[in-house]
C-alpha cells in the first residue's frame, strides 16, 4: 500500500493507504477529523470542501494518495485557539446556518472566494458558491455573512492564507 505524508490542520501524518481511499475518508475515519462531512457521491454538494494547498477542493473527489505531500486545512483548523476565523463569526452573526451540515464546506468555499475577490457583490457571492448546496437557509443569510466577513477582513487588513505556515 502506498505510504503518504500529509499535513492536516498543522499536524503531519504518515499513513499507509489503499489507493482508492478518498481524502475525506482519510480525514474522517483515520484521522478523526469528523468536522468535514460527506453529502453526496458526485461532488455536487460541496459539504466536504477543505483547503488543499491553500485552495478549496472537494475532499470526496480527491484520493488520499493525490494529497501526498500536501497541506490540508479543514473547518477544525480555522480558528486560532478560541478565536474564530472572521468567516465563522460572520456565519454566526448573520444566522447563515441552520442544521449546519453544509456549513464547514460553505465556510471553506467562502474563504476561498474572498481570496480572489475581497469585496464581492451579492451576485459574485452567489456564483462563487454555486458548488456548495444548502437546503435550510435559502442562501440569503449565507450571502450576507460572506459579505460581512469580507468587510471585517478588509477593515482588519486581513488576507490570511488558509494553510499551515
Amino acid at each position: 500500500m502506498p505510504r503518504i505524508t500529509v499535513t492536516v490542520d498543522g499536524v503531519t501524518y504518515e499513513e499507509e493507504v489503499e489507493p482508492r481511499l478518498l481524502l475525506v475518508h482519510l480525514l474522517r475515519d483515520r484521522l478523526g477529523k469528523t468536522g468535514t462531512p460527506v453529502g453526496c457521491d458526485t461532488s455536487n454538494c460541496g459539504a466536504c470542501t477543505v483547503m488543499l494547498d491553500g485552495r478549496s477542493a472537494k475532499s470526496c473527489s480527491v484520493l488520499a494518495v493525490q494529497a501526498d505531500g500536501s497541506d490540508v486545512v479543514t473547518i477544525e483548523g480555522l480558528a486560532r485557539g478560541d478565536e474564530w476565523h472572521p468567516m465563522q463569526k460572520a456565519f454566526h452573526t448573520e444566522h447563515a446556518l441552520q442544521c449546519g451540515y453544509c456549513t464547514p464546506g460553505m465556510i471553506m468555499a467562502a474563504i476561498d472566494l474572498l481570496r480572489d475577490d475581497p469585496d464581492p457583490s451579492e451576485e459574485a457571492v452567489r456564483e462563487g458558491l454555486e458548488g456548495n448546496l444548502c437546503r435550510c437557509t435559502g442562501y440569503c443569510n449565507i450571502v450576507r455573512a460572506v459579505r460581512l466577513a469580507a468587510q471585517e477582513m478588509a477593515q482588519a487588513g486581513e488576507r490570511r492564507e488558509v494553510r499551515t505556515p
Binding site: R28, G32, K33, T34, G35, T36, P37, V38, T74, I75, E76, L78, A79, W84, Q88, F91, H92, T93, H95, L97, G100, Y101, T103, P104, I107
Partner: peptide, 21 residues
C-alpha cells in the same frame, strides 16, 4: 439572539451520527 447551537457547527465539533466511532 444569535444561536447557541452555532459554536459547534461552525467549528466542526459536531456529532453527526456518522461521526460516532
Amino acid at each position: 439572539r444569535r444561536r447557541k447551537e452555532d459554536a459547534r457547527l461552525v467549528t466542526g465539533r459536531t456529532t453527526w451520527t456518522d461521526n460516532i466511532q
